[in-house]
Design a protein around this nucleic acid. Sequence first.
DNA 1: AATGAATGAGGATTCATTCAT
DNA 2: TATGAATGAATCCTCATTCAT
Lengths: 196, 196, 196, 196
Amino acid sequence: MDLEKKDKKESILLATLELVAEHGFHGAPTAMIAERAGVGIGTIYRYFDDKDMLIYEVHRELELKICEYILSGFQEEYSYRQRFVYFCSVLLQYLIDNPKEFKFMEQFYNSPYGVELRRDRIFSEAPECENSCILKDLFEQGRKHGLIKDVPLLIFFALVFGPIIAAARDHILGFITLDDNLIGSFVEACWDSVKK
Amino acid sequence: MDLEKKDKKESILLATLELVAEHGFHGAPTAMIAERAGVGIGTIYRYFDDKDMLIYEVHRELELKICEYILSGFQEEYSYRQRFVYFCSVLLQYLIDNPKEFKFMEQFYNSPYGVELRRDRIFSEAPECENSCILKDLFEQGRKHGLIKDVPLLIFFALVFGPIIAAARDHILGFITLDDNLIGSFVEACWDSVKK
Amino acid sequence: MDLEKKDKKESILLATLELVAEHGFHGAPTAMIAERAGVGIGTIYRYFDDKDMLIYEVHRELELKICEYILSGFQEEYSYRQRFVYFCSVLLQYLIDNPKEFKFMEQFYNSPYGVELRRDRIFSEAPECENSCILKDLFEQGRKHGLIKDVPLLIFFALVFGPIIAAARDHILGFITLDDNLIGSFVEACWDSVKK
Amino acid sequence: MDLEKKDKKESILLATLELVAEHGFHGAPTAMIAERAGVGIGTIYRYFDDKDMLIYEVHRELELKICEYILSGFQEEYSYRQRFVYFCSVLLQYLIDNPKEFKFMEQFYNSPYGVELRRDRIFSEAPECENSCILKDLFEQGRKHGLIKDVPLLIFFALVFGPIIAAARDHILGFITLDDNLIGSFVEACWDSVKK
DNA sequence: AATGAATGAGGATTCATTCAT
DNA sequence: TATGAATGAATCCTCATTCAT
């Protein structure tokens, strides 16, 4: 029963993820989410205060999952460059392997939800563990050892996340095909942009 | 008359641009657009088939305007590298100087509208003149002369537009401040990522 | 067309009055009001900000109507006692002649709507013209000339409105029948309660 | 067990009384009642057929309690006038001492619940013991001995309950302050209205 | 040509009641 | 016996679009 309970919540989160990924926030009314999740409409409101909270929780789950996934493969003995390349490659690979998650995240960050979240995190200086945390560490280490260009954190982020997200989107939309080879040279280019 | 007519259409386009930029597609109902434009609701439908077409036309106008602006400053005598740097700098500067236009474009490309438009252009091989045309030329010239990395067009785009859009967004949201200096080193980094 | 416009608003006000009178606030959903008024649901929101404002306006209209009706019959040459008796009789008669209006008013004053309105009026000391204004004048004149008991205004109101509303309600519910005779002795009793 | 059972039922009745008094019928959903009562939602339905029955029973309990309270102070040696004054004073005092009970009763009688109850009692001629029973006795005695005006029972009720309820409400809402003195003159006025 | 009143499908949310445990 | 998760009809309100003037 504890299991079933968790199942329902998970169903709702998954249904939301999928519908938002497929049709955007517009295309994910609560009635449709409930139907896809196989629960009653009212059930959504047992688990989430309102639709906003549901959206936030989907984001939160994805963030944790991605973060965990990336961290799980980090090797301590990697050189700095290797760690950077690993991060970019594995993130890009994850995104194209999980297109629904990517599409949801894209919608999220391009909405008041995501903007406010970023604003809070940037100004509160208290970024809970998110994938950007890993990159933030890379930034700080790189700066400390003089391995990367002398730019602010958010410019560094723009140089890394910007191309990765653009590439992932085009792959998922079927505009390009990112194979291992291409990912390799692409990530190399990212490295060129930040390295000193 | 013809003038007045054009004025009304322009008012509607401008009101739409502003409202979408300020509040997103959600926050720009036709009634509000009409009010801001100083016309009747019905008038919108005299100039545009439906709201979708209105959105498309705003996008089209912006695209032309930006393209024109960038082209207007191109100097033939620039070296390839100079032309690349010029394109990136002037585009980024334009975006942060015109935050409403940027925000509209962001909304647009992160919606079914923009996705379908890109799909059509990529596969129909008939890209109407847009700012990406300029970059496409840069790509082709660079490839021909072996000045840039050996990657597909869309990867090249990802390496250039990706960081620029990310940086512009963070500046407009007030997360960072892009001064001439920073723009300079930022664009330099972009060049590093694509140059051979 | 100005006429038709007014007609629609009036239809909505009337439908609301009737439905609230018949079934209480619970029994007057917007969809039912629209249907009874012969308009679309959305039309309600062209004329009223929300359901609360609609309710308030019905109240306001009734208040003005009743006030006007009572004032229209006031004779200057009446003695104080005659004016008091006139007020009570004509108010009571009006209420039992207009049972829907009475029932609406009862619902209104027994809801947060009415309580807040009374609170505002009592403490802001700025009671816009309402039927209680007439009684307030009667109170002040009576007190000035020592014709009525030495009690606060609201106690005077309780002694007058209290019985009248209770009697009107029982008549309208069919529990008693108030004929001219009975109204006469009833109002006489009210006079006895306030006279010195 | 039997005790615990009674406790649970009492908790539910009390929670209902309080929530309806504080927020009206609207503001007293079963989930909130259960929470306030410290029982499960389903438990409510073990003790009451449905929400209507719960409301009715709260009313019934209050009625009995008030009736009992008033009767407990009745002195046989009182004159008729003294008994009338006692009834009015003690009822009014009880109401302002128990504002939640008063507010519940007000809600109740201004709803289909109360109207139907009164209708049943008036026409079935079988009024279960309620506080109005005491007043009914006073009415009958007064009429028999020619001490009160020659009006029907319900008019007598209107003259007594009407002002008392109005005064209690205004006191509880904080619009006036009823001290012993004021209650005295107020009840005197009520007597004036019914006495021959 | 221009208007804006009218519309009603569609959206988020609530809540009395049931029923499996 | 007691529980509270689950339900979905019902509610208020929005907004793209139409059409009579």
